[in-house]
Every structure is written in structure tokens, then in C-alpha cells.
Design a protein around this nucleic acid. Structure first.
Length: 932
DNA sequence: CCTGTCACG
DNA sequence: GACGTACGTGACAGGG
């Protein structure tokens, strides 16, 4: 069909699709050969979704996907810096580029690119041709450069946001209509494409100037008349640069094409072509979906067994467990040490008798210097267990170096500032070595490299990373140790097996390091890794080793009291129920409440059991006494089992202190997580619970000091979202929730009631969490309509908040991640999902930059803290997200507070100058309850 | 091993 | 138009 009046042309910006697909999906690889395929998969999905969405009455008659071709265009001849600051294409995306073309053709959609021209120029040329022929055009892209084409039958469609952009939309974005967009762009420049523009003039100012003077040329000719001296000078002095910028942003509407509009007619996909392509890519789900849609049978997808030697990215070297060396003597070890010095780096891994670094004993050390070249140094292996004779059982295995000898030889290497020690989760090994008197440094950590690059995409344990990035499943530790009751410790593992396992770990670590090192740069997270992740390792190691003194007597006394009270309550509850049952069983409790007692409103969860959460029981408490007693019982049960009992088990017998372990790469937002035990959730909100903190004490002659950031997340929100009213309130030191309430409800601050303030507080928190009327309604126990009215009012009073939320969601959808002020990336792979998961992902995306920036700030404070308090008799013990806890000798409290507060309040600087002050509150006491 | 519950920021 | 919703964690008990 010839293109003409009544025709509708769709032009799809192919590169935008590809990059969106690439960033939206984890680095998927084709199962059979490891070919990176994530972007192709995403691309095909997007094309398919596009096709499905365009079957209606407004279906296009003509369509093409347009790509960029080559990196050199006429714009580079005009200006050699054009797009010069663009990152190189990620290594794993490059091989996917030709496949996206193939995919387009497989869908039977015209696929066009022309050497030396950008896709935008081809799109411009086709749009004008279509307009001239009397047809309509829809450009599927969100690239603002294309906005100059809009109007007179040409519209843009942002496929992700599903938003059409017409002339008014362009006006909204640029402040001018499409025909003047290039003028505004020429002035404002574009940092992404490295278009210089006029320094100091952004889109707002540019639009204002153009609207005042009509066109860019008229503006430049009348530059002398401009009142603002700075602006006038810029426009006069930078005229050439501005005119060059205009030529750079101006799309070429006369690109020579080797095809015509008629060639772009919409065609049905041919199942004989499309399905084999999808099957070859090994897209199971998509192949089936499309086959169903086309009404044909889905082809069988044959996935050959992975052939590691054919893996393209890792054409390296297969893993050979038999190639590893067992080092049994100083003579064996010497050449390894020489090789390490020759290279300047070595991957190191320790094997121990357990997972708790404070109690586990060193069993052996493995080293790797090149992929495939690794050794294991057994140091404390014993004969395999269960010997009849208790004495021979503990005899060391023959042929091991004395531990002291090995450590004496390794210590200089491990502490050599010229030798980089590479590990996976180095904090563990650093602590093991520290207990042997070795301060390992400098270090790299593959777990943290992965975390900096891939937070939110997947876990960062070695097994996951090896599988994903090396296509190799490591020997499972369970195969050596067994599990459950018969589990043995690593010192009982036979040497030949131990060598294979341990050396492989070091080998994997080295290979991951070689792969990740360049990728840190392409992912632009080198600074995050080097400034926020890696330096934290020694800091946390020292905090964990310091531990905090916990008074067993106090806990034990509380346990006894709790047990007594619980027994009492249990009796009462059984009496009220009319029979005995396990109060701790939600299942049994639900049956009692809703089946036997016949209370109304029982809701079943997905397992079919009644929900009996605190919110449910609180509602029921108005109807009957039993649920109220159960709530009391549950509180005590929680306190006893999780705190007063369990904490006693964690008191280290040697130090008399409790040593938590922080996971650096656990939470996707950059927060730390505390485990074994978790010291970040010690009770404080209720009086009974709070008393548990009395058991966390300072040594005699010392004090505990707690410093915590006041409202740090709301302050960050005020800064990021640029909310002037919030900023002002913080600058004036106002009660922020009261100030919010006052602004929203018009109540003067001195007439504020606690209830109004409470509601405003809930809204403030809600905003940080990605507010919804439902969530707020549930939190405040008010009707949803009322909650919605609150939120509407809030957005009305603080319109910047909604802009922030929309912008953050949009960014996540486009890039597949969000970022903190310090550049930490948090990936949001589900952001383009459908159904309830989309909501989750969106709220998480809104929250992540705020929570993550707060996490970055306290990390910066912790990293600087040791230096700042070096001369004080004080130790940093714990971090609880926005709080740091110190132990300090009596008499030095004030000095510590002053020094630590300064570090914390200035922690964002100099990278970020926040528009709001950071404020730190401090408390001192003999125990944690008093210090808070 | 999963689910529900509840402790924290 | 229906659906299901506050963000981030870890530990414990029950129950299959």
C-alpha cells in the first residue's frame, strides 16, 4: 500500500528500547552457551507488547524500528566533543546489538539504520515525508531531542509511561512550542550528549529568553539589550558556541534514505521465521506466549548442556579441581609468595571451624594468583572424627606446616601495602587474621564489588556470583561437611577434598575480581565501591571485635520474671478459651477465636489459616478479653525468646561481650544489617522492652554514648525533592511533624494538638515509603477516603513531593535503577512488572534514594570516625541505621560527643552540600537505656 | 524449609 | 475497573 492520506506511521526509537531493556533486566545469559541475552529478551518483550497494544482501530498502517549506526556522524565533524563523555557500550551489550536487528526483522517489522546518521535524523526525515504525504506519525520514544518534530500530525508516545506528547506537551517540557525547541536546546545545552550551549543558562531561562525575543537568531542579534550583565556577556561571548550547539541539536530532515515510506507497511509476523528465532534465543516463556497468540504450536526448545570451554565471555579456562596444589612446607610456600610479589595481588580465602569469626578457629588458607593457579595450605586438619580412641582422634593430619611458620611467612605479604589482597567477604577473613595478629591490607572484595554494581538485582554470595558470572557451580560445602546432626567441621575434612574446595574458592574469587574490575567503571560505581563499601570493612571488623558488654544477671532475672508472667497469662487465656491450647500457635489461636468462640471478622491467609496479627487482635480486644491477654503474652514471649534468653547465648565466653556481625551487602538500599545477634532491633518502643537495654552496659569506669541523627530521612527528602517549606522548618529547628500539621491543617503551632501532630507524622513517614491512601488509612485507622483527602492536601501544600515521586518512578522505569545522592545505585528490576508487584517496586524505588542516602551518610561518618576520635579513650561499638553507640572512659564524654557529632553532622560534605542542616542528638549513661 | 509474627530504623 | 498496597531488615516458633 502506498503511503498517503489516512495512513498512520509509527517510528520506534530502537536504541531507546535496547537500553531500556538492558537496564531493566538482570544480566541474563543464554543457557546453552552463556551468550548475554538480557537486552534481546527485554527488547523482544517490548516489541511484542507494542504489537499487542497496537491492534485496535487506531492501528498503524506503516511501522519501522530505527537504529543508530556507527558512532561517527556529521555532528562529530562539527564538534569533536559531541557525545564524547558517553560511556563505552557495556561489554555484555555489544554482542546483542545485531541480535536486536534480527529480532525486529523476525517480527516482520522494517528495521532501518543508515551509516553516519543518528536514528533521530532518520526519524525526522521520515516524519517530514509522511507529513508531506498527508499521513499521521507517532514517534515511540521519550528522547527529548525528537520533540522538535511534534505537531501537524506528528505526536510522540512515551511507551513506558504510555503518555502521548503533543504540542502542548512539548510546551510543558521546554516552555516553547516544537518549532523553537532547537533554540532552547541550543542555549541550554545537553550534558548527556555533551552539547555545550550557553553556560549558566538552563531550559527555564532559555525558554524565557526565546519567548521574549522570538527566535535564537533575534535573541543573539539583540544580546546587547539584555539587562542581566552576566547573561548578556555570555550570549555575546559564546555566540559561536551557541550557534554550534544549534547545529548539533538540529535534526537532519533530509537524510538520504535507501527506502521509501511504502516499504514500511505493517506486515503480519511469519510464525515460520519468528518462532525459530525466539527458540534459538531460548526464550521459553515468550516463545510460548507468541506461539499461543499466533495460534500455532510452540517449538521445542533444545538446550544443549552448557559447554564451559565454549562460553564466550569466559573462554578462559575450565575449573579443574585436580590442578590445585596442596602446600605442605615452607619450601612449597616460597614460590607462591614470590609469585604474589611479582604480580602485586593475590586472592585469599580462609577455612575455619565455623561461621562465627569470633569463635571459629583457622584451619587453612588458600591462595590464587591466576585463574586456575591456586593452592591450599592446610594448617589445622585433624583425622576424620568418630575414632574409638579419644586421644588419636585429635591428632593432626601428617604433612601440614606448623601454623606459626605459615603465618610468619604470610604476614609480610598480607600486610604489604604493595600487594592487594582479594577476597569474597573480606571482613570475615580480616577478623580471622586479626585474631592471629595480622592486619590484612590493602584489600579488594568481590562481594562488595558486586554489591556496588548489582544491588537489588541478586544476592552477592560466592555461589550466586560464580553461577551467574562464571557459569560454574562451586563445590557445595555441604558435600564436605554434611548437614544436620552429623555435620562435621572443616578441620575434619580429608585433605584432598579440602584442597579442591578451598583452592576453588580462591580461584573463583580471583576470576570474579578480574571480571568485575573493569565493569565497576562502566557501571560508574567505582567511587561508591572505593569510598563507601571497601573502607567500611576494617571499620566494621574492629567494631564487631570490640563487641558490647551485656550483663547476664540482668537478662536472666528478666527472663525469670517474664516466664512467671507468661505462665500466669497462659492460665488465664486457657480459662477464657475453655480449654488448653498452644498460645504460641497462630493456627490454634485462630481456630479458638473464630471457630470455637465465634468471633466475627476472621480472615484466612494464603495457607488457609486465620490471620491473628497484632492489628487483628487489637480490633478483637474490644469484643473479648482473650485477644488482649494473647497480645500481652505475645509481647512477653517475644522479649523472652528473642532477647532475654537468646542474648545470653551470644555472650562470648572469652570477652564477656556480645559480638554482632554486620552484613554490608545485605540490604539493597545501602543499609547495614546486623546478625547473630541482631543488635539493630533491640526493643525501645515499649517500657518493658526498653528495659532490655539496661542489660547493655559500659565497663566499670566507662560510659556509653549514643548519637543519633534527628529526622535524617525527612531532611534528605526535603533536600532531594526541594521542598522549601520543609527546608525552612528544618533550618529554623522546628518540630517537623508539628510544622507539617500546621501547614496542612492551618493550625498555629502553639495550638497544635498531639493527635493532629500524630496524623501529620504518619503522613511524613508515608511519603518516605511511597504513600498510598490504603496504607495511610490502615496506619491511622481512618477511612480510606479520609486518608486520600489528607494525601491530596499534602501534595497540594508540598507539590514538590509529587514531582519527586513521579520523577523517581520515571527514572527507575527508564534506567532500571534509582540512585542516592552519593551515586549508589539500587536496581529496580520489577519496576516494569505488571500487577501488584509494580506497586511494590514503585514504592521501593521512591524510598530507596532517601533511605540509601541516609545510609551513605552514616557510612561516611563511620569511615571518618576512627581518625576523628583517635586521641580519645573511646571505641565505636554499634550502628543502628541512624545511630552510633560508643563506649568511652569517664571524663572524656564531652570531648567524644563534640568530635563524633561534628563528624556525623558534616558527613555529607564535601561531596554534597545539603540545603538542610544535619542535627545529631546525644545521650550518655551507664547503660544503653540511659544513653538513649 | 516456609509462614506468620514482631522487634528495630 | 479490579486488585492489593505503606520502605528496609532479622529472629523465633510452629508446622509440614
Amino acid at each position: 500500500m502506498a503511503f498517503g492520506k489516512g495512513c498512520h506511521l509509527h517510528l520506534i526509537d530502537g536504541s531507546a528500547f535496547i537500553f531500556r531493556a538492558y537496564h531493566a533486566l538482570p544480566p541474563l545469559t543464554r543457557k546453552s552457551d552463556g551468550l548475554p541475552i538480557g537486552a534481546v529478551a527485554g527488547f523482544c518483550n517490548m516489541i511484542f507488547r507494542y504489537v499487542e497494544a497496537n491492534e485496535g482501530p487506531d492501528a498503524p498502517t506503516h511501522v519501522a524500528v530505527i537504529f543508530d549506526k556507527g558512532s561517527h556522524t556529521f555532528r562529530n565533524d562539527l564538534y569533536d566533543q559531541y557525545k564524547a563523555n558517553r560511556d563505552a557500550m557495556p561489554e555484555d551489550l555489544r554482542p546483542q546489538m545485531p541480535l536486536t536487528r534480527e529480532a525486529t526483522r523476525a517480527f516482520n517489522i522494517a528495521c532501518k539504520e543508515i551509516e553516519g546518521y543518528e536514528a533521530d535524523d532518520i526519524i525526522a526525515t521520515l516524519s517530514r515525508q509522511a507529513q508531506a504525504a498527508g499521513g499521521r506519525v507517532t514517534i515511540i520514544s521519550s528522547d527529548k531531542d525528537l520533540m522538535q518534530l511534534v505537531g501537524d500530525g506528528v505526536e510522540m508516545l512515551d511507551a513506558m509511561k504510555n503518555r502521548r506528547i503533543d504540542r502542548e506537551g512539548v510546551l510543558e517540557k521546554f516552555g516553547v512550542y516544537p518549532e523553537r525547541v532547537v533554540d532552547v536546546q541550543a542555549l541550554a545545552g545537553d550534558s548527556v550528549d555533551n552539547v555545550p550551549g550557553a553556560p549558566g543558562i538552563g531550559i527555564k531561562t532559555a525558554a524565557q529568553l526565546i519567548n521574549e525575543y522570538g527566535t535564537l537568531e533575534e535573541l543573539l542579534d539583540s544580546a546587547e539589550q539584555i539587562k542581566q550583565p552576566k547573561r548578556r556577556q555570555t550570549l555575546i561571548e559564546k555566540r559561536e558556541q551557541i550557534e554550534l550547539s544549534k547545529r548539533l541539536v538540529q535534526l537532519d530532515e533530509a537524510t538520504p534514505l535507501d527506502f521509501t515510506l511504502d516499504d514500511l507497511e505493517v506486515l503480519e509476523p511469519d510464525p515460520e521465521v519468528l518462532l525459530p528465532f525466539l527458540a534459538e534465543m531460548e526464550f521459553r516463556t515468550l516463545t510460548k506466549r507468541i506461539a499461543d497468540k499466533l495460534g500455532v504450536e510452540s517449538p521445542e526448545i533444545q538446550i544443549a548442556a552448557p559447554a564451559p570451554e565454549e562460553g564466550p565471555s569466559l573462554a578462559d579456562l575450565p575449573f579443574d579441581p585436580d590442578s590445585y596444589t596442596c602446600v605442605r612446607s615452607a619450601e612449597d610456600l616460597a614460590p607462591w609468595i614470590a609469585q604474589i610479589h611479582a604480580r602485586g595481588w593475590v586472592a585469599v580465602d580462609t577455612e575455619t571451624t565455623g561461621l562465627n569469626e569470633m569463635t571459629a578457629d583457622l584451619v587453612g588458607i588458600s591462595l590464587c594468583i591466576e585463574p586456575g593457579e591456586a593452592c591450599y595450605i592446610p594448617l589445622a586438619h585433624k583425622a576424620p572424627g568418630a575414632a574409638d580412641d579419644l586421644f588419636t582422634e585429635d591428632a593432626p593430619v601428617e604433612g601440614q606446616m606448623p601454623m606459626a611458620d605459615a603465618l610468619a611467612l604470610l604476614k609480610p605479604v598480607l600486610e604489604d601495602p604493595a600487594v592487594l589482597k582479594i577476597g569474597q567477604n573480606m571482613k570475615y577473613d580480616a577478623k580471622i587474621f586479626a585474631r592471629q595478629g595480622i592486619e590484612i591490607a590493602p584489600i579488594d572484595d568481590t562481594m562488595l564489588m558486586s554489591y556496588a554494581m548489582h544491588a537489588g538485582l541478586h544476592g552477592h554470595g560466592m555461589d550466586a556470583l560464580s553461577d551467574k558470572y562464571l557459569g560454574h557451580t562451586p563445590i557445595p560445602i555441604k558435600s564436605l561437611l554434611g548437614s544436620g546432626k552429623s555435620q562435621i567441621t572443616f578441620d575434619r575434612v580429608p585433605l584432598d577434598e579440602a584442597v579442591k574446595y578451598a583452592a576453588e574458592d580462591a580461584d573463583i574469587t580471583l576470576r570474579l575480581w578480574q571480571m568485575f574490575r573493569p565493569r565497576l567503571h562502566t557501571a560508574q560505581v567505582t567511587r561508591v565501591y572505593e569510598r563507601l563499601e571497601r573502607p567500611l570493612v576494617p571499620v566494621l571488623a574492629r567494631m564487631e571485635m570490640a563487641g558490647i558488654k551485656v550483663d547476664r544477671e540482668t537478662l536472666s532475672r528478666m527472663s525469670g520474671a517474664f516466664a512467671q508472667k507468661m505462665a500466669q497469662l497462659e492460665e488465664e487465656i486457657h480459662g477464657l478459651a475453655g480449654r488448653t491450647f498452644n498460645v504460641g500457635s497462630p493456627k490454634q489461636l485462630g481456630e479458638i477465636l473464630f471457630d470455637e468462640m465465634g468471633l466475627e471478622g476472621g480472615k484466612r491467609g494464603k495457607t488457609g489459616a486465620y490471620a491473628t496479627g497484632a492489628d487483628v487482635l487489637e480490633d478483637l480486644a474490644t469484643l473479648h478479653e482473650l485477644p488482649a491477654r494473647v497480645l500481652d503474652w505475645r509481647q512477653l514471649s517475644k522479649l523472652k525468646s528473642t532477647y532475654t534468653d537468646a542474648l545470653q547465648e551470644h555472650i562470648n565466653s572469652e570477652t564477656g561481650r556480645v559480638h554482632t556481625s554486620y552484613s554490608i551487602a545485605g540490604a539493597s538500599t545501602g543499609r547495614l544489617a546486623s546478625t547473630d545477634p541482631n543488635l539493630q532491633n533491640i526493643p525501645i518502643r515499649t517500657e518493658e522492652g526498653r528495659r532490655i537495654r539496661e542489660a547493655f552496659v559500659a565497663e566499670p569506669g566507662k560510659q556509653l554514648i549514643a548519637l543519633d541523627y534527628s529526622q535524617i530521612e525527612l531532611r534528605i527528602l526535603a533536600h532531594i525533592a526541594q521542598i522549601d517549606a520543609l527546608k525552612e522548618a528544618f533550618r529554623e529547628g522546628q518540630d517537623i511533624h508539628a510544622a507539617t500539621a500546621s501547614e496542612m491543617f492551618g493550625v498555629p503551632l502553639d495550638e497544635m494538638t498531639p493527635d493532629v501532630r500524630r496524623q501529620a507524622k504518619a503522613i511524613n513517614f508515608g511519603v518516605i515509603y511511597g504513600i498510598s491512601a490504603f496504607g495511610l488509612a490502615r496506619n491511622l485507622r481512618i477511612p480510606r477516603e479520609e486518608a486520600k483527602a489528607f494525601i491530596d492536601r499534602y501534595f497540594e501544600r508540598f507539590p514538590g513531593i509529587r514531582d519527586y515521586m513521579d520523577a523517581t518512578k520515571g527514572f527507575a522505569k527508564e534506567h532500571g535503577h534509582v540512585a542516592t545522592l552519593f551515586g549508589r545505585k539500587i536496581h529496580t528490576p520489577e519496576i516494569n512488572a505488571r500487577g501488584p508487584r509494580a506497586g511494590f517496586a514503585q514504592r521501593a524505588a521512591i524510598n530507596a534514594p532517601i533511605q540509601g542516602t541516609a545510609a551513605d551518610i552514616i557510612r561516611r561518618a563511620m569511615i571518618r570516625m576512627e581518625d576523628a576520635i583517635r586521641d580519645l579513650p573511646a571505641t565505636m561499638l554499634l550502628q543502628v541505621h541512624d545511630e552510633l553507640l560508643f563506649e568511652v572512659e569517664e571524663g572524656a564524654e564531652d570531648a567524644l560527643i563534640a568530635a563524633a557529632r561534628r563528624v556525623m553532622e558534616e558527613a555529607a560534605e564535601p561531596v554534597i552540600k545539603l540545603d538542610v542542616p544535619l542535627v545529631v542528638d546525644a545521650g550518655t549513661g551507664a547503660n544503653w537505656a540511659e544513653a538513649h
